[in-house]
Structure formats: C-alpha cells, structure tokens
Design a protein around this nucleic acid. Structure first.
Lengths: 202, 202
DNA sequence: TAGAAAATGGGTTGTCTAATCCAGAAAACC
DNA sequence: GGTTTTCTGGATTAGACAACCCATTTTCTA
C-alpha cells in the first residue's frame, strides 16, 4: 500500500463516496464497479489501485457511512439528555427521510440487511457501526438517569430507541412514507417520557 | 399456464418452498436458480415451466413467506387483546429467533430491505405483507381500546409495535443475539401496558 | 385409453461483471 | 531532478447466471 499522497487520498475518498452513494441508491450487488468508476470520475484500474477487491471497497463504504451518519447527527447528540433534545433529534431524522422521499432507508442498516447472511466480515462492520450509534443514544439517557430524572434502565431504553428507529426506517423505506418512522420514534419517546421521574415530570 | 394438475401444483409448491428457504438463508441475489432447482429436487427446465422468470418466482416467494409468517403466529394473534397475550406472542417470537440462532432476520423484512431500491413490484408485495401483519396486531389493540381498556390510539400503537419488531429483528440478525429483539419488544409492550386504563391496571 | 400435462436432461446463448495486466503519460513529493 | 506515485485507457480473462430451446419419456386425469 505504501504512502498515500494528498491527491491519492483525495481520489480514494472520491471513490468511496461514489460507491457509498451508489450502494445506498441501488444496493450493494446492483452497484457495479464500472458504475462506481464512472460516478467517481476515475478511469480504468484506479479502483483496483486503491482497493484489493470489491469486498475491501464495501468495508470502506461501511466505515464511511457510519462516520457520515454519526457526523450528521452529532450536533443533536449532545442534547439527548432531555425530552426536548430527544424530540428534536427524532424530528430531524423524520425530516431528513421526508426530504429523501424515504428512499434508501438507513445507510448502515440497509447494507446490513443485504450482507448479513453472506458476508460475516461486513456484518461485523455494520454491527460495530450500530454499537457506536447505540452508545450515542445511551450517553444521553444515562446522563438523565444519573441525574435521577429517569426511572428506567438507560441501556435497555437506548437499545429500544435504536430498534424503533431501524424498524421505522425499514417500514418507511418499503412503504415510501414517513409515517411509520414518525410513529415509531414518537411512541418510543412517549415511553421514555412516561418514565421520567416525578420530580422532572413536574 | 393452463390448468395445474395435483402433481403439478405440488411441484410448483416445492419449488417455491425451496426458493423461499434459500433466499432466506442467503439473500435473493445469492440464491441462484440452479441452487433452487437442486434444492427442490426438480430437473432442468422445470422452474421455467412454472415461472416466467426469476422475478415471478420472487413474487411467489414473498406471498409464500407472508402466509408462512402469519400462519405461524395465527394461534397467538387471537389473544393480542390482552397484555398476557401480547407478552406471550412476543416471547414466542424471541424464542423462535433464539432457535434460529438469529439467522435470516424477518422472512419478509429481509427480502424487503434487499429489493426496496431496485424492484418496485417486489417492494409493493412486501409492503402488502407488512400491512397484513400490522392489521393482525391492530385487531388486538383495537379490541382493547373498544372495551375501554386502552388509553391510546391503537393504530399508532400497532405500527409502533411492528416497527419495534422489525428493528429488533434487524439488530438481532446483525449482532447474532436475541437481546435487541427481546428489549425492543419488551419495551414497546411496557409502553402499551403503561397506557392501560386505570380500571384494568388496578 | 387417448390426450394433456409433467418431467427429464441435456445443450446453448448472451450478458454481465469482477478481476488482471500493461505501457505510457502526468503529477506529486522529497 | 529524480523517484515515486498517480492516472489514463484500453484489452482481456474467466466465471457466473438467467433465459431459452428441444427431443423424449413418464405420469395424470377426463
């Protein structure tokens, strides 16, 4: 592999970004390397210059999508220790899906579903992405719990919130409407709210 | 197509069942028609005798899996109008996944995720499968609501339960452990329980 | 039992796509 | 300024797989 020059790193990044977009839009198997090559605006053997094979590119894409998803939400993650912050976060996710017309589903989860049964390595990469997502949610709920504001296990709640999000995204993707996501997140947050300690609930 | 004899219908069913199993175990694209042919124990051009192309077979598989999933749960559907029945149903789903070692995820949902972005016809077939599933859940919650036992919109709750189930299944499939499903269903049912009318809760 | 459907088993075609290889030009970096 | 890396652009291989065709035999079933 040796060292990557500035330009080399930029090209590599362009390839990963293009691959991520195509795999998101069409699925992993439907996104051919020729498509990726064209979309990235590179020629011939450049993809193989930076990646051993399609599998290596896929793993890079999973990394990339995990970073992208977490980065996109990061401004909102800091406020997940209050109901207002949680609702704001949920609203932003719903709004984003609405803008995307519910296409693609979850950038991580949709890849996960596609590779889970025939690509253990990719499955594990997706699992670790989910773990980081779960931890971001858990941090907020744990803070609430530590302050004595929350009367429930924050770990279980975080997992339930992530599951509601993933299920909502899948149903939204398949039905091409945001309502399932909206209702799934709204309901699980209603539940969190119902577990607020009496002192906070006012 | 003309008329199907008894034996013809049986062979067709064998092909669909084999295809369903393989698509579930490996994903739609990884299940080749040659694999299906061998697994069904039929020879040569039999698949094309009963199905125009792979797409037609896929649609038959989605139908088949929808029926299978609903039929498997049908003994429990009748009791979804009480917390005991709901918990029993959830336990059965968790237990089933445990026995499957969390492989495959949801027979309908995993196909849905794979085809959503490149096969509108299949996506709609999955959507209608989800609708039937949602309605089975809704029937129970609506009954509770009609009896004045439930203090919430049964339609929204049913959608939230299905989303929690799907999200839990996806996370379970990717992490290869039942906990996400267990927690997701447990938490959403806790929420349903928290919305029981005072008269029932008491 | 006669006609229709089911089934065998093989061959074939065409396409798609991942994966390699190469010779030479351009650019970046020390 | 020389070395390394990047990049071009094409050619090519090799395999997988869907789809189609056909001659023949077996099995239903009306």
């Amino acid at each position: 592999m040796s060292s990557l020059t500035r330009k080399g790193a930029a090209t590599r990044a362009r390839i990963v970004a293009a691959a991520a977009r195509l795999m998101y839009e069409r699925g992993v198997t439907e996104a051919t390397l020729e498509d990726v090559r064209a979309a990235a605006g590179v020629s011939g053997s450049q993809i193989y210059h930076y990646f051993a094979d399609k599998q290596a590119l896929l793993l890079a894409v999973i990394e990339y999508q995990t970073e992208a998803v977490l980065e996109l939400q990061s401004p909102l993650f800091g406020r997940l220790d209050s109901m207002a912050g949680l609702r704001q976060w949920a609203d932003a996710l719903v709004e984003y899906q609405r803008r995307m017309q519910c296409r693609g589903g979850c950038p991580i989860g949709s890849i996960g579903g596609e590779v889970a049964e025939n690509n253990p390595e990719a499955r594990l990469a997706v699992a670790s992405g989910f773990l980081r997502w779960e931890e971001a949610i858990r941090a907020g709920l744990t803070a609430m719990h530590a302050r004595g504001e929350l009367d429930a296990d924050p770990n279980d709640l975080a997992l339930a919130v992530l599951a509601a999000l993933q299920g909502g995204l899948l149903l939204a993707q398949i039905q091409r409407q945001v309502k399932p996501l909206e209702v799934a997140l709204g309901t699980i947050l209603d539940h969190v709210e119902s577990r607020l300690a009496a002192s906070v609930r006012g």
